[in-house]
Computed example of a mutant assay.
Amino acid sequence: MRFTTLLLAASAVALTACGQQQTSGKADGQVSGGGGARNQVWAAGSSTVFPFATRVAETVARTTGGTAAKVESLGTGGGIKLFCSGTGANYPDIATASRAMKKSEWDACQAAGVTDIVELKVGFDGIVLANAKAQPTFSVTREQIYRALAAELPQGSGFAPNTTATWSAVAPGLPNQRILAYGPPPTSGTRDAFVELAMEKGAEKVPAMAALKKSNEDQFKEKSHTLRRDGAWVDAGENDNAIVQTLEKTPNALGVFGYSFLENNMDKVKAATVEGVAPSFETISNGSYPLSRSLYIYVKKANVGVTPGLREYVNAFVSDAAAGRGGYLQQRGLIALPEAEHATVKATAQALTPMAAPAK
């Protein structure tokens, strides 16, 4: 518990946990920018990827020594926005993400001079709904998740505010307890994945929403992605460990966070099944768990060879020892890629092959 508390405190500012090899040359190979020079790797973004990024940082620090890097937990959207804001020392070398970069974000990068971005998928994770171990076990469908947490539900020819108070009112057989869910804010990739994989897919099961998707897809997305603001859904910040702690103190609540945090807190919380499937390494990697997603890091190719230790850090992240099957990141809850896909990612990292523009 003491270690977890210290780790959380570090994420609020910057974790200086990754030793890197110094490079020779002018200014010791430092990245220069309007705010001066920087001689350390800087990664920022997803709270879900944060434990993996820091674990790699710790390992590289032990094996190389030198100046430490910093890793920040800002949420996927916040990390990519900062990454794409410009070049030089004032902006991160790496954005960590729990979803793929969007076309709009890629366009913002290009406009700010951030070109030649290397996209590396590092593994899989699942979105879980969990509650305290002593509480009833939930078994929900995506339609039930949508009906419980959507801000508005179809009524007649329009929509009405969602006033459903208890889970048992959503569907017979669910616990007779207040609907209360703690989850990540809109800047989080976990939030993006949750509304796309759970809320949107659940809405498609409702006839009126399915018809709306055919007639007006933009409105369908807006209605299915908007979560309740009446206290049934609570934005709990970017710190998934804090949500786990909240579930211990608020036993009737559910929490929404990444599988890696469930894996590391099995003594405190348990996961709901979704469509009858429980989240696990096997069900997430084979795609049978409905709320599975991919995790990424994005690297500025122009900074490799300029920021001391950036290449070492990137290569370490995608290595067999870290992200491969049985690698040390599996102990933190990362689900490894299939071997063939992992080999492709390693080759991309070695060649620093830039990504193409996302489709959307």
Rank of each mutant, 00 (worst) to 15 (best):
R2E: 11
F3C: 07
L6V: 11
Q21G: 09
T23K: 10
G25Q: 10
Q40D: 10
W42T: 09
A44M: 12
T48Y: 00
V49Q: 02
V49L: 06
T54S: 10
R55E: 15
V56Y: 06
A57H: 01
T59L: 08
A61I: 02
S73L: 00
L74G: 00
G78M: 07
K81A: 15
L82E: 11
A89W: 11
N90G: 15
P92N: 11
A95L: 02
W106S: 07
C109R: 01
D116A: 13
E119V: 03
N131H: 11
A132W: 11
P136F: 03
F138W: 06
S139Q: 13
A148Y: 08
A151N: 11
P154E: 12
Q155R: 11
G156N: 04
A165P: 10
S168G: 04
G173H: 05
A181K: 03
T187F: 07
S188D: 04
S188P: 02
G189K: 01
R191V: 02
F194Y: 15
E196H: 14
A198Y: 05
V206M: 10
M209E: 13
A210Y: 08
S215Y: 02
L227F: 05
W233Q: 09
D240Q: 13
N252D: 15
G255W: 00
D267V: 10
A278Y: 03
A278H: 03
P279M: 13
S288M: 06
P290L: 02
L291K: 06
I297Y: 05
A302Y: 04
V304F: 12
A321I: 04
A322L: 04
A322C: 05
A323P: 05
A323V: 03
G327P: 01
Q330P: 00
L337C: 04
E341C: 00
H342F: 08
A343P: 01
K346N: 11
A347Q: 13
A351K: 12
T353P: 00
